[in-house]
Simulated scan of single mutants.
Amino acid sequence: MKLFLSWSGARSGRMAETLKQWLPDVIQAIDPWVSTQDIAKGVRGSREIATELSGTNFGIICVTPENQASPWVNFEAGALSKQIEESYVVPFLIDMKISDLTGPLSQFQATIGDSEKDVRKLLFDINSTLGSLGVSSDRLERSFRRSWPEFEKIIHEISAARPPESTAEVEERSESDILEEILLLVRQQEHRLADIERGSRSIPPKYSRQTPSDRRSREETYIVRELLEHGHRVRELLWGGDNVGITIDCDDVGLSSVLLQGPVEEIAKYLGRSVVVEDKSGQVIVRTGPAIP
């Protein structure tokens, strides 16, 4: 079974390489894949990654406090969730608690890396997807117990190797930030339920019977959801004529312009408007041409 390991940064990369070596020792049918180039430099082979994603059955995202906002990590998480079931996409937390997880990654069921209970459950979940290729529960339990002490030692070493710029404690999330994220998740769920009620996800919400205010609300929810799935939080939406302006949080304009070009074009097509995406300083990240109805 193909298993995709996503990472960004030194600690996350070491964890991905450790999982790549360790997982097949416990469950022989697993074939992990991890890129060997530094994700933060933006020089990964997109064609190679796309090929691996297309054949992936399970995805593990190695998450640390310093990389959970990484556009690449969130992009790959979104790509994985579109390729396979969400239950088969697992953030693997290093030096973090589940409550520390924010943004798009928080929609997935995470595994705490130094929790023996959590990692055991992850292995049994992976094994259950293998069907006849999986190992027996007794054999898996014995193999896990033998290998866990060494794996746990490595986890603790990686957790302790915090980069100089990171703090000893993860910054506590504000109440307003938590409430905002809950609202976004609720809106996403409402959108999914509406799709199910219409009988097909292929029918765009704008074609359903609704008032102008309902339509605008759905359009805004769609924009927020699409950009959040690609690792970017929407801060402001400005509607005017045949255009819509979107302000997002962005740390790297060059990288974001590459990652968001396709999604923003889809947003423009869905809205029937031209779209301009900017960062908080007003710098244009992506601009689409006149919309084609």
Rank of each mutant, 00 (worst) to 15 (best):
S6G: 09
W7A: 04
S8Y: 05
L19R: 05
W22Q: 07
W22T: 14
P24H: 12
Q28W: 04
Q28L: 10
Q28G: 11
V34M: 06
Q37D: 12
I39P: 13
I39G: 05
I39A: 14
A40P: 08
A40Y: 04
G45P: 00
E48Q: 13
E48D: 10
T51M: 06
T51C: 04
E52R: 11
E52D: 06
S54N: 11
F58H: 02
G59Q: 03
I60G: 06
C62P: 06
N67R: 05
Q68E: 06
Q68C: 02
W72Q: 03
E76Y: 06
A77L: 02
A79D: 00
Q83M: 14
E86H: 12
Y88I: 00
P91S: 09
I94Q: 02
I94G: 04
D95I: 09
I98Y: 01
I98M: 03
D100T: 06
A110L: 02
T111L: 01
G113I: 00
E116M: 13
E116L: 07
D118E: 08
R120D: 07
L122I: 12
L122A: 09
I126E: 04
T129E: 15
L133F: 08
G134C: 07
S136R: 12
S137D: 14
D138N: 09
D138L: 10
L140A: 08
R145W: 03
R146K: 11
R146H: 08
S147H: 13
S147Y: 03
P149T: 01
P149A: 07
E150S: 15
I158H: 04
S159Q: 14
A160S: 09
A168C: 06
A168V: 15
E169Q: 10
S174N: 14
S176F: 01
D177M: 11
E180A: 15
L184R: 15
L184Q: 15
L184P: 01
R192E: 15
L193M: 12
L193Q: 13
A194Y: 00
R198Y: 10
R198H: 12
G199L: 06
I203F: 09
I203H: 04
R209W: 00
S213H: 01
D214M: 10
S217A: 07
E219P: 00
I223A: 04
I223T: 11
R225A: 08
G231T: 11
H232C: 09
E236V: 01
E236G: 03
E236W: 04
D242M: 11
N243S: 10
T247A: 14
C250K: 10
D251M: 06
L255I: 02
L260F: 09
P263A: 07
Y270H: 14
Y270S: 14
S274L: 00
V276D: 05
V276Y: 12
G282R: 13
Q283Y: 13
I285Q: 12
I285W: 14
R287Y: 06
T288I: 13
T288F: 08
G289P: 00
G289T: 15
